[in-house]
Amino acid sequence: MNNDKVIQVESLTKMFGDFIAVNDITFDVNKGEIFGFLGANGAGKTTAMKMLIGISKPTFGKAHVAGFDVFTDAENIKKNIGYMSQKFALYDDLTVKENITFFGGIYGLSRKRIKEKANTLIEELGLGNVANQLVGSLPLGWKQKLSFSVSLIHDPKIVFLDEPTGGVDPITRRQFWELIYKAANQGTTIFVTTHYMDEAEYCDRVSIMVNGKIEALDTPKKLKEQFKAANMNDVFLKLARG
């Protein structure tokens, strides 16, 4: 197995009865890469992502995530990935520190390690003044940044981000992406879905799903050339509208 490829997917398919939600998708993601996973509502993004993070069994095909088989080794996958979604992020009724401690705890970090992590994390995000405040009282943008950092607490090989920046103001959105760049630069692979097409351009490579299939996969630059489009939004529209 190639060590540089942290996600390897081959002919992965998921069917619900007669309905083919994910239809024979094949792709690789390299170590330290920011991989954008785009698609219209109902194109099968979420289903595909669920298979990769080991919470849904594929109907057939092959997939290795962080070196583990999604069919047989889902538990090991979960230990080696981080996950953050817009819907579930942090506990609003716990403080910043308590959230960090809790998530460090469920990934089996030692108490000393959690403490170190919590301190660096709070310091890096500039949350020193609010470390003992309830997360629910923080602005949305701060929560999302904190939530991303918490998803990295156990130094996962890959972190999956499901529409992480929905509704966040443009400045915070950019700060969020700076965090993503930083993590990628340190060798963490980023797998991200988004509805903001300008964010798609921040990715190293982008795949676009239409009706369960990956219809395009390349760097944003090459995709734009291929589809003779000015930006990713036009690429997306051309593809999805056929």
């Binding site: 219209a40 509805h195 529209l237």
Partner: peptide
């Protein structure tokens, strides 16, 4: 248009 894909948004 929140949470809706670019095609539907357009």
């Amino acid at each position: 248009t929140t949470g809706v894909d670019p095609v539907s948004r357009k």
